[in-house]
Amino acid sequence: MSAKTTALLRGARDTVPMLIGALPFGLIFGTLAVASGLSLPATLLMSALVFAGSAQFIAVSLIASGTGLVVLLLTTLIVNLRHMLYSASLMPHVRHLPQRWKIPLAFWLTDESFAVVHRHYLDPHPPKELKHWYYLGSCLAMYSNWFLCTLLGALLGNALPGLADWGLDFAMVATFTGIVVPLLRTRPMLLAAVVAGLVAVLAYDLPWKLGLMLAALAGVSAGVLAERWLAAQPAKEAINESV
């Protein structure tokens, strides 16, 4: 087996926990999409062409409540804007690659693959020239898993109309919690999470999911300010640590 294949398979293997989290999420998307009146081909094509779980989820719930096209597309823009920030984090690592690599790697960039791949790029041990193969492996695993789960969910949704009420969407909460909590190692990071969570709840009723972007912005600002403030006060920090 070539070193490239090994890197590809390692990327897929390290993504397995994310696949398990995405599994019920994809199932419920397929189920809800059919229940909300989206046709089976449109449901499958959405997973194949858009490939953005939370945006697809929100779109389907908006379709069910009869929302128009413009608001649907604006919501997609706002909910997915975070991917631009992910691509900004990964950009220093992929900037040397040709466009034939960058296009698919950008298309397949999700929360889950970002979490796995970003960690891999920070690891100094694996050979640098193989890391995009690892990235590709993670993406292919997520993509095929997402498509199959959507298909299964749509078929199940047709067969078992009550499935949408089982609370399978908790899988998203469980997965994202498992990604976030281990990242809360410093006090600025913890503060960023607390502020983002608080603002998300307070601003929940704003239209077009604007509360999400506002919360993200507030969390990032709080983290940066706290980090700069701590860096400016090294002596005080040392005293606090020793108490």
Partner: peptide, 29 residues
């Protein structure tokens, strides 16, 4: 990508993005 470089402030801010966005999704949920 090859024509853009980020300032240290932007780099620092990017580090907080995943935690802030994902927390903002899960806490209301």
């Amino acid at each position: 990508g090859d024509r853009v470089r980020f300032s240290p402030l932007v780099q620092q801010a990017l580090g907080y993005v995943p935690v802030a966005v994902l927390t903002a999704i899960i806490v209301p949920a």
